[in-house]
Design a protein around this nucleic acid. Sequence first.
DNA 1: GAAAACAATGACAACGCTGTCATATTATCG
DNA 2: CGATAATATGACAGCGTTGTCATTGTTTTC
Lengths: 349, 349
Amino acid sequence: MKVTINDVAARAGVSIKTVSRVINNEPSVRPATRKKVQEAVEALHYQPNLAARNLAGSRAYTIGLIYDNPNAYYVINMQNGILDACKARGYELLIHPSNSKSESVHQELEDLVLHSKVAGLVLTPPFSETKSVIDTLKRLNVDYVRIVSKTADLEDVEDCIQVDDTAAAFDLTQHLLQLGHKRIGFLCGGEEHVSTYGRREGYRQALEQAGIPVEEDLVLKGEYSFDSGVQGAKKLLSLDKPPTAIFASNDEMAAGALFAARLMNIDIPGQLSIVGFEDSPFSRQTWPKLTTAHQPNNEIAKCAAALVLSKARGHTATESGSASKEAGIKREFIPELVVRDSSGPAPTE
Amino acid sequence: MKVTINDVAARAGVSIKTVSRVINNEPSVRPATRKKVQEAVEALHYQPNLAARNLAGSRAYTIGLIYDNPNAYYVINMQNGILDACKARGYELLIHPSNSKSESVHQELEDLVLHSKVAGLVLTPPFSETKSVIDTLKRLNVDYVRIVSKTADLEDVEDCIQVDDTAAAFDLTQHLLQLGHKRIGFLCGGEEHVSTYGRREGYRQALEQAGIPVEEDLVLKGEYSFDSGVQGAKKLLSLDKPPTAIFASNDEMAAGALFAARLMNIDIPGQLSIVGFEDSPFSRQTWPKLTTAHQPNNEIAKCAAALVLSKARGHTATESGSASKEAGIKREFIPELVVRDSSGPAPTE
DNA sequence: GAAAACAATGACAACGCTGTCATATTATCG
DNA sequence: CGATAATATGACAGCGTTGTCATTGTTTTC
């Protein structure tokens, strides 16, 4: 029922150490021997026991995902992406939702790393952008990859998968400008997210390029939630001179803005255009469907996981396939404009 | 840095076996000794190493969650609920998304159980309701708890957490009837889900009680997705004599129905009432907000996990706190009617 | 108060693998 | 062809726990 390395060794007529070499892709095994072992593995459906590997080896076979994100779609996409990368390499995923506002994160991280040996961690915003968290991780000497918003003053770029929020926000804003909008409201995300600033910056740059000054009244603080979108839009639309378009910093906020517009009997996109950011599934489930920027979270997560693993493996240079395993791992993503039905020509006054 | 059972033993002046006894709550340790050990554990921040426990012990310290559900909110809630239960008891969660339509599930399950020792599995629909999957699990002799839709002919009730879809659907339908609706369309979920039948049955019973015959034209096949909701609603609303209310089998379908109604310029709830099922976050993010039945997935998952763990522990009767650990674990849930804005009085003809 | 019963503790061998190091085999070279 | 250098393989000791079983206290019992 339960087949161990001994069974394989016996069947292949070699020592367990040789079997170990084969399954770990270590050098110094003659092709013929390797083949014998591989056949035995196949025949017996052998799968190395994870607990034993973790215990015995210096490497670990689990990667952890740290997140604090109320957006279920985001989280699921991250998980699936990582899982994809893990499965291909025989690793497992340990998920760890946490609260970025609580001070306990550091203790939790320490426990996680010490208690259940992890090969590495994937961090999502806002953890990935919190210095104290990164410091803790450095102190614990654990590998990690941060999924972060691209900014100029980023340290340790090699630990990061970057998302260029600024460029995407620029495109989105330009799209609105091209539709003839001159007054474009902007709903900011939470201040603990660097993406908030990146997206606003893209908005600013596009306006600047078009020679339109940023009106501070049109830029509202908020957070990445539906309710925040509702509140923000209400406020913008109650202005004496309301904007003809609203850039909501994510899809959830955009859905909220849509909701507020409906409340106020405003036609979308006839009287008001709304754009979101992320292209989460429900940007297709609103009425009308949202114009947004597609952020390939699944793919991003996959790359992050691949990067963590290549780092983790880097240490134990026992690999045969030497050097740069990192080749082919995309390190920067620019969300792409997706035009749907929530944006249209600016109304003629 | 990394503190092991040896460190604790040394500090407490006992053997490692005694420490093991204390941390596992085994009997036969004098209170004074127990206290000494506990103090040492505290002082050193000792946390037993999971890999070692898994390897050495007969029990496992990981619980697996098997799901195949496109609904991100559902999955996240399940995960969080299980994680809650796990954390309290020092277990870990291994998530395993799978494809219920593929034949590979059985092999995957086998690998999962054999490869990474699990204490037990939590199954969600449709796996929890698929006989062949259950058979495989029985054969593998692994503990599991199934989250299922309550039905009369359910075997092995003690393995289940039941959700009474019929009762909730009955309430929802009755709500519509009380608003004066006589022609109520029904959009079915996927046929692989038992809940689909339960919900339809509740709908039927309510109509029957009200003395209204079920019109087969008003009951449409579908699946638990937004698009299916759109299609179904379009069809119903194109009928010669369209219904005045639509019961969508879940919130996503209801959102789809809402979308279709908007497309056809139908006022909700003025001309048409729509109700959903589940009370997922986005039932609050549609316009108008959905009347639905609240299904406490987080709580359900928590109970499922608690049940798995109590089962797993049952085997190793080493526990001090004897017998029925299962006390206090809720085994049946009836989603509760939540009236919001998508349902209103039937239009006068 | 000695025998019997029981409770508390510890020594030591697993668990299934990887790491280290010694050994056996094969290739290389003068 | 013999010596030397690689290369391939295996023996064996951990990794940090738990499980088994033997040993040492501590009660109870008559």
